[in-house]
C-alpha cells in the first residue's frame, strides 16, 4: 500500500504551480503549523505544558508566535506582487464558481470516502479547492488582523480588542480544520494522486490533469497550440 502516488519524471507532465506559488504555499504551511502549535498553548489553557518546553517556555512560544506571524503575513503579500498574474488567474478561477463546481461539491463526500463517482470537467481548481481557497484565505486574513490587534491592543478601542479574541480563535479553528482536510487530500488521499507533486515539483502528469481538471487541461493544450 503506497502512501503517496509515485513521482514519475519520465512521462508527459504539464506545469501547475510556478516557483513563487509553491514558495508562498510552503512558507505559509510551515509558519502556519508553528503559529498553530505556539498559539494552541494559550488556547488549551496551559494543559499542554509539554509543548511549551519545545518552544522554550510560554514566553519563548510567544516570541516565536510573533516572529512567525510577521513572516506569515509578509511573505504571501510579497509573493502576490511577484506573481501577480498567477494570483489574478487563481482568483478569477475561484470566482468562476459554476454548475460543475456545485456538482463536484455534491458528489465529493462519496469520492472522499473512496467510492467511484463521475465528476463533471473541472477547471484548474475544482469546486472543493475553490471553497478551500475562499475559506482559508478569509480565515488567514481575519486571524492576521485580529492577531495584530491583540499584539498592540493599546492603540485600538477596547471593544475591538475584546472582539479580536474570539475572532482569532474561531478563524484559527476553521483554518486548522481546512488545513487538516487539505493536507490529507493533497497527500494521502489516493484520489488526489498527482496534486501533491503539482505543489512539490510544480508539474503534474498530463493524463492525470486530463482526468481531474479537464477544462483546465484543454485550455493549456490550446495555449500550447
Amino acid at each position: 500500500m503506497e502512501l503517496i502516488t509515485k513521482y514519475e519524471p519520465d512521462v508527459e507532465r504539464i506545469e501547475r504551480f510556478s516557483f513563487v506559488a509553491r514558495f508562498a504555499h510552503w512558507s505559509h504551511t510551515i509558519t502556519f503549523v508553528i503559529l498553530l502549535l505556539t498559539g494552541l498553548l494559550l488556547f488549551m489553557d496551559s494543559r499542554w505544558d509539554f509543548l511549551a518546553v519545545v518552544f522554550g517556555g510560554y514566553r519563548g512560544a510567544g516570541l516565536i508566535h510573533r516572529i512567525m506571524a510577521v513572516i506569515f503575513t509578509v511573505v504571501p503579500l510579497v509573493c502576490v506582487v511577484l506573481n501577480w498574474r498567477g494570483f489574478v488567474e487563481w482568483w478569477k478561477d475561484v470566482f468562476s464558481f459554476g454548475k460543475n463546481d456545485i456538482k463536484f461539491l455534491l458528489k465529493f463526500p462519496l469520492e472522499f470516502m473512496g467510492f467511484h463517482v463521475d465528476i463533471p470537467p473541472q477547471t484548474k481548481f475544482n469546486g472543493g479547492e475553490k471553497m478551500n481557497s475562499v475559506v482559508t484565505t478569509t480565515s488567514c486574513i481575519l486571524v492576521a488582523i485580529s492577531g495584530y490587534i491583540m499584539w498592540f491592543p493599546s492603540i485600538f478601542p477596547p471593544t475591538l480588542v475584546r472582539l479580536a479574541y474570539p475572532t482569532h480563535d474561531i478563524f484559527m479553528i476553521i483554518a486548522t480544520m481546512m488545513v487538516c482536510m487539505h493536507g490529507y487530500l493533497g497527500s494521502l488521499h489516493p484520489g488526489s494522486g498527482e496534486s501533491f507533486w503539482g505543489m512539490v515539483k510544480g508539474t503534474v502528469k498530463a493524463d492525470w490533469a486530463e482526468h481531474h481538471h479537464k477544462a483546465w487541461y484543454d485550455k493549456q493544450r490550446e495555449q500550447q497550440g
Binding site: F112, M113, M178
Partner: peptide, 14 residues
C-alpha cells in the same frame, strides 16, 4: 473532527 474524518477516509478509500 476534521482529523477523524481524514483518518476514516484514509482507511475506507484504501
Amino acid at each position: 473532527l476534521a482529523l477523524a474524518g481524514s483518518a476514516a477516509s484514509f482507511f475506507t478509500t484504501r
